[in-house]
């Protein structure tokens, strides 16, 4: 690939991502609803465990990850409902943009939208479960969430793009996405736990490496496969 075509694709991706983000911004009430849903899930977990603060601290990383995952699913479904309401995805296929460019643009905009969940949910989880907010820990949590959001966005866009045309989308998207995300979620739970409870053995590096590997694999693989999914159309 020459430098010029690479630059062309990059320009396409950026233009499409900007379009997607503008759309998300116009529908910001949806984003607010998704974030509120996440906060609600965090609250429900603390109610489910009860006032035993030690159990809450033990499981805090897992609760935060589940809340983020549930909001992510909701956000993905909302984002693609928009795309299909007026056949917008079909319109995009008429443009001289490659399937990969459309995929990466969508994945970037979804990842950026998901990223908003972190700065809201992480401090709420810290207050509810730990009882105090440490700024250093908060920065680490948000940094980890950046990686996880990338890991969730790529398969999420691929599968939401596929299932959004089906009537049973609400069941199928989690069914396809959750088992695939287990390695990402598992390392995220471990890493969150280390931030929230302390990391005496310095294990953080290995979990971050696993996250990075899966982000890389998913972004590459889903980018290649999206072209075929798009070809099938509706």
């Amino acid at each position: 690939m020459t430098l010029r075509t690479a630059g062309g694709i990059l320009a396409q991706v950026l233009a499409l991502a900007a379009k997607d983000l503008r759309l998300e911004w116009r529908n910001r009430s949806r984003i607010v609803a998704v974030v509120l849903f996440g906060v609600l899930v965090l609250l429900l977990f603390s109610l489910a465990v009860g006032p035993d603060s030690r159990a809450l601290v033990e499981a805090s990383g897992g609760f935060l990850v589940i809340a983020l995952l549930l909001s992510t699913t909701l956000g993905l479904q909302e984002s693609f409902r928009l795309e299909h309401a007026d056949g917008a995805l079909e319109g995009l296929r008429l443009l001289p943009a490659s399937g990969a460019a459309i995929f990466y643009a969508k994945a970037i905009s979804v990842a950026l939208t998901l990223l908003l969940l972190g700065p809201v949910l992480a401090p709420v989880a810290m207050i509810l479960y730990i009882g105090e907010v440490a700024l250093g820990g908060l920065a680490q949590l948000i940094g980890l969430w950046l990686l996880a959001a990338l890991g969730l966005a790529a398969p999420g866009v691929l599968y939401a793009g596929m299932t959004s045309r089906l009537r049973s989308q609400d069941v199928l998207l989690p069914l396809l996405l959750y088992p695939l995300e287990v390695p990402v979620l598992l390392s995220l739970v471990k890493a969150f736990g280390l931030v929230l409870r302390g990391d005496p053995m310095e294990q953080m590096g290995s979990w971050v490496t696993i996250l990075l590997v899966f982000v890389g694999v998913y972004w590459l693989l889903c980018g290649i496969l999206f072209e075929y999914v798009l070809e099938e159309g509706t």
């Binding site: 398969p155 691929l158 596929m162 089906l166 049973s168 199928l172 069914l175 396809l176 695939l180 694999v217 998913y218 693989l221 889903c222 496969l225 075929y228 999914v229 070809e231 099938e232």
Partner: peptide
Amino acid sequence: ALRSFVEDEGRRATWTAVTTIVAFV
């Protein structure tokens, strides 16, 4: 499970292949 939800043959074939490749990770 996904296969049983899709009625169009071409689309079902593509989705089966795509999900199989991703699951192989």
